[in-house]
Simulated scan of single mutants.
Amino acid sequence: MALLETGRRALRRGRALLPWTTVVARNASAGRTGPRIAVIGNCQARGVARSLTVLLPNARVDLMPIGTLGKGRRSLSAFAESLRAYDHVFSQPFLTGRFRDGGSAELVELLPQARLFPAIVFPAFHPDMVYVGDLGSGAEAALVPSPLHTYHSAITLFGYLRGVSAARIVRLFREQTFAALGYLDGWQLSAEDLARSSRAVGVDLTPEILRWSRRGAFMHAINHPKLFVLADLAARLARDADLAPADLSVDAYLVDDLLDDVIWPIYPPIADVYGLAGSYTFKQRTAPGAAPSMLDLQTFIAGSLALYDTMPKTRLTCHRTEHWSGAPEIRALFDAA
C-alpha cells in the first residue's frame, strides 16, 4: 500500500514512477527541474542515490534496486527503453539472469547515457564474516540464516563442523587464531581487490580508498560501507558525468541507512593492527529508528550453533571452511582449542 501511495503522489506531481522504482527520500524531487538520474544497484545504491540528492540539489533521482529487476518477465531491451527518459543512468554490475536478454554490460551498450559503478566490498576489517549456502544461485533464500541475517562467522562455522563445543569456539577468538588464519594482514589484498574491481568498470577508486582509510574504519560489514564512502562514490559519478556536485560532507546532512542493518564488530586484535577500537559486540538488523539489538560473542556463537543444528550439513557450504578443511595446520588449530 505504501508503494502504491508513493506512485499516486508521483502521478499527481506529473511524473509517474516505473514499477521497480523507489523514491529515495520523501519529496526528494519535488520542485526540482534538473537532470533526471536513475541509480540501479544493491543495498549500497540507496546511499549513492540519496547522496546525489544532496550533492545535486536540483537533480531528480530515482533508485531501482537490483532485486526488483526482471520482475514480470520484462526483457532487458524493454527495461532500457523505459530508461531513455533519464539523462544519466548509474548502475552497479548485474549478471544475465535478471533479464533473459542480458545484464548490465548489455544495458550500457543499449543506453549511451548509462555508466557502471562498482560495488564496495572490503573484508579487511571483518575477515571472519562469510556467507553460507548456495551463493551461485544468486537468491537470498538459498543462503543459510544466522542470528545476523545471512552473515556468519567462519571460525564459528568451522568449529561446529569440527565438533568443537561452544565454549571452545569462544576461546578461538584470540590473536593467535587470527594470525594463523591471516586475519591480521588482509588490508593489502582487500585494497587491491577493490581497486581492481573498480577499474574493471571504469571508476578507479584507488585515491578514494586512501582517503577513506584516513577516517579509520569505513565499513559496517564486508559489503556495507559507511555513508561517507557512498557519498564519495556519488560525488565521483557526478563529476565524471560533468554534473558539478556541491563540495560538502553529505554525512553531515543525511542519516546512514545502513546503521539499521547488521554491524559486525572489528575484533580487538584486528583493531589493534589498524589503531582502532575493537569489540566482540554484534548488532542485529533493526527497524528504522529502533533501538539497536546487540549480541555478545557467546550469545552470537550459541545462536549460530543452534541454527546449524537445524540444518542438514550439506547446506552448510562455505568456500572459506572448505579451504580450511584441506589445511592440516588449521584443522589442528581448531581441534586443539
Score class of each variant (00 low, 15 high):
V203K: 10
L333C: 05
L316N: 08
P288M: 07
N58F: 02
R239N: 07
I270A: 06
L161V: 03
D240A: 09
R46N: 06
A290F: 00
Y274M: 03
Y253G: 01
I155N: 02
L205P: 09
A10F: 05
E106S: 08
A221R: 07
I66C: 11
R26D: 14
F218W: 11
L148N: 05
R285T: 14
T6E: 13
R199C: 09
S279A: 08
T317F: 13
G34F: 15
V250K: 01
R115S: 14
L76I: 01
F218V: 02
R174I: 01
A221I: 04
T206A: 15
L194K: 00
E192T: 04
D193P: 00
Q44G: 05
E322V: 01
S165H: 08
S198W: 08
A114V: 06
I263D: 13
D257T: 07
Q284E: 13
A114G: 04
F125V: 01
N42V: 05
S146A: 07
G186V: 00
C318L: 05
L18Y: 03
F94C: 02
V54S: 02
Y160H: 12
G275V: 08
A25S: 13
R32Q: 12
P269R: 04
A191D: 06
A85E: 15
S51Q: 02
P269H: 04
W187M: 13
T21N: 08
G14W: 10
S190F: 09
L181H: 07
G303F: 02
L181P: 06
W324C: 00
L135R: 08
L254D: 00
L210E: 14
T6M: 11
S325I: 04
R214Y: 05
Q298T: 11
T321S: 03
L243D: 04
H149Y: 14
P123V: 03
R315L: 10
P147V: 12
A337G: 05
E81L: 14
L55R: 03
G31E: 13
V61P: 00
P93E: 12
L56G: 03
I37L: 15
L157H: 06
A59H: 03
D256R: 01
N223V: 11
